[in-house]
Design a protein around this nucleic acid. Structure first.
Length: 638
RNA sequence: GCUCGUGUAGCUCAGUUGGCAGAGCACACCCUUGGUAAGGGUGAGGUCACCGGUUCGAUCCCGGUCGCGAGCUCCA
């Protein structure tokens, strides 16, 4: 007998092998109608998998987030059912639910076309209308091999089952799949879904294996959620930094320059420069010193640092300089270490914090390049802290403060991940554990929440990754802080302690924005191109209504320039409507319009970005104050 | 790098079942001097990504190269 504890505390005794469906039915018929799956002891299973253990027992309905995974996974089966009907030659791979939906992988001779997707979608509606129950069966290895005799990918998976593992299959009408489940009761439960796109995907994610055709789709329990999701996809498209970057004339790439290399146009360069100026002030306040190191350095340096050993596939090739090999630097750390070693150091000097906007070059495979977000040349706001082991916790604390201050300025909420020892790593397991404990201790003491990314560390040390959350809820790679017990060893750097003996300093690597390119690309999407005043390439556009007021407009502009604002006067011989439209399209925060009334009273008719027709007539002096406040506070809203 | 798709004016895109290349915007000039999201006219602008093949003839068909896009893999 198994004991099930219901959410209200009541218990039920049932025999092992009882179907959850029967338990739910005995609780209530209404509940059975709504039930999609059950959760036993925290594990989700469907209504037709026999109970093998007792514990807490919860019925999942469409209100439970976990039930959405069940729905989507079943959606994948229904997709495969439809595909198999129309393309009997398709060999089935895997079809899991994923963060925003589900996919199914197929091996086919002829790849799928967008028209195929439409046909599959309408075929899915037929499968749904036919209301096939999902039927579970537990089978032996040899039975399974028979059922999937024509599906080599499934046979491969079957060969990996252990003797004692249960092999289960699920059938919905004509389609059978090797699957652990759980599933919804029948195909009619899937109502609101959409096939999105196809893409190639390696079998089992291995680039040495064959390429399958993947169909991506999404599904929700109700129409509103589906529509909201599709709307979010549209919204992401609308914010695409590649489109906005071009429209707003921020940056470009050029075939003649090469892929993955960014040309910053004047308007984009302003944004970057503002960020750099802000950050320079910030870090000088936080005790950093600025340094510069060369873009190409002798390969010998990367032999010492271990980059040639561990990072070679991401480094550009060597160039010959009078018989010696030089390489573009993929990271700034070795150079900073050389500066540290330029003097003998005392414990009294530490911590030493070197910062550089250092441009690095990394070879990235052509298929991964993406606008400003994934490039081959980028500038890191890089810094390295050299300190004693005892100083590490306080340095981490300082960094947490610094990061917090910076991310607030840009209006990003964030989460923190602690990434631990990867497979390919320098240094001992003990060193790694020590470092990881140290990082987590500091955060626990602060009450700072974080999650663990197992095996996600850099090859030279564990790291803290800050994940930014943008205006539409997407996560971005933000600041990282990495502990490094390895480079100090390799470079044999030391300082003299109070005991007059040499000691090994600890090294911290950290970036705040990470890559200027990626960060600005992300900001474009975060703000949807409508930058806060302090970052806006053009902050005020002054528009005289007619030529007669051009002089008055220029006077307004001059006074704004005097407080450091970026202002243009648009006195072109175009209609007022035309000029307003252009400024609005360029997302200029303020339009200051000057006509007869304003010129006579030294005022402007202010049109604020996003506020439409609404205008505010105010004295020029007041407007200047408004802009000044925006600039000094780095305000996020107008 | 791999699978699929794609490349026509500065930009966004039509088009040619193989026969002198099209629009809108932007740009130049002229008219218009305007009160809150595109006033009107005229004009200039293209080796139809590049290389090769098929053909009397290729922007179009075929092959290759390069770029771009959706993904896979990888990452700041």
């Amino acid at each position: 007998m198994l004991t099930l504890t219901l959410p209200d505390g009541a218990t039920r005794q049932v025999e092992e092998g009882t179907l959850p469906r029967d338990v739910v039915g005995s609780i209530g018929q209404r509940l059975l109608r709504d039930a999609l799956a059950v959760e036993i002891d925290g594990q989700v299973q469907d209504l037709i998998t026999p109970l093998r253990k007792g514990g807490s027992f919860k019925v999942l309905t469409s209100r439970d987030p976990d039930a959405l995974d069940v729905l989507r996974h079943s959606g994948a089966h229904i997709l495969a059912t439809a595909v198999r009907r129309l393309r009997p030659d398709a060999k089935i791979g895997f079809g899991p639910s994923i963060e925003d939906g589900f996919y199914y992988d197929f091996e086919v001779e002829e790849p799928f076309t967008p028209e195929d997707l439409e046909k599959f979608e309408s075929e899915m509606r037929k499968v749904i209308a036919e209301k096939y129950p999902f039927v579970r069966a537990e089978v032996s290895q040899s039975e399974a091999r028979q059922k999937f005799a024509d599906d080599p990918l499934k046979l491969e998976r079957l060969s990996e089952f252990r003797e004692d593992e249960i092999i289960s299959t699920y059938t919905d009408g004509p389609f059978i799949d090797l699957c652990r489940g759980p599933h919804i009761p029948d195909t009619s439960y899937l109502k609101h879904f959409k096939l999105l796109h196809t893409a190639g995907a390696y079998w089992r994610g291995d680039e040495k294996r064959q390429m399958l055709q993947r169909i991506y789709a999404t599904a929700f329990f109700n129409k509103e959620d589906l529509e909201a999701h599709l709307h979010r996809l549209e919204e992401a498209k609308r914010r695409d930094h590649r489109v906005l970057g071009h429209q707003l004339d921020l940056y470009s790439t050029d075939q003649r320059v090469g892929p993955g290399l960014i040309l910053w146009h004047p308007r984009g360069a302003i944004i970057r420069n503002e960020i750099e100026n802000y950050e320079r002030d910030l870090i000088l306040r936080h005790g950093y010193e600025l340094v510069y190191t060369p873009h190409i350095v002798s390969e010998k340096l990367f032999q010492i640092s271990g980059h040639l050993e561990n990072f070679k596939e991401n480094m550009f090739g060597a160039m010959d300089v009078e018989g010696a090999s030089y390489r573009p630097k993929p990271m700034n750390c070795p150079g900073h270490i050389c500066i540290f070693q330029g003097h003998s150091r005392s414990y009294r000097d530490l911590p030493i914090r070197y910062a550089e906007f250092g441009t690095v070059y990394r070879y990235e495979r052509s298929g991964v390049l993406h606008g400003m977000l994934r490039v081959r040349g980028f500038t890191q706001d890089d810094a390295h802290v050299f300190c004693t082991p005892e100083q590490v916790p306080s340095e981490i604390e300082r960094l947490l403060d610094l990061v917090d201050e910076m991310l607030k300025t840009f209006g990003y909420p964030y989460t923190i991940e602690l990434s631990t020892m990867p497979e390919k790593a320098l240094g001992s397991v003990e060193q790694w554990n020590q470092a990881q404990d140290l990082l987590s201790d500091v955060m626990r003491k602060r009450g700072q929440e974080f999650t663990i990314d197992e095996g996600g560390g850099a090859f030279y040390g564990p790291k803290l990754d800050f994940k930014l959350i943008d205006a539409i809820g997407r996560k971005w790679q933000g600041p990282t802080v990495q502990l490094d017990f390895n480079l100090p060893e390799r470079f044999d750097i030391e300082y003299t302690g109070a005991d007059n003996a040499p000691h090994r300093p600890v090294m911290l690597h950290r970036v705040l924005v990470g890559s200027m390119e990626r960060f600005v690309g992300g900001l474009i999407e975060h703000y949807a191109g409508a930058f806060p005043v302090w970052l806006a390439p053009e902050q005020v556009r002054v528009i005289p209504i007619a030529d007669d007021f051009a002089a008055a407009a220029r006077s307004v502009a001059d006074r704004l320039k005097a407080i450091g604002a970026r202002v243009h006067v648009d006195d072109r011989s175009e209609t007022l409507n035309y000029r307003i439209r252009e400024a609005e399209t360029l997302k200029v925060p303020y339009m200051a319009i000057v006509g007869k009334r304003e010129a006579e009273s030294d005022a402007v008719a202010l049109r604020i970005r996003g506020a439409g027709k609404k205008q505010d007539v105010m004295p020029v002096a007041d407007f200047i104050e408004t802009v000044k406040t925006q600039l000094t506070t780095r305000a996020l809203t107008l």
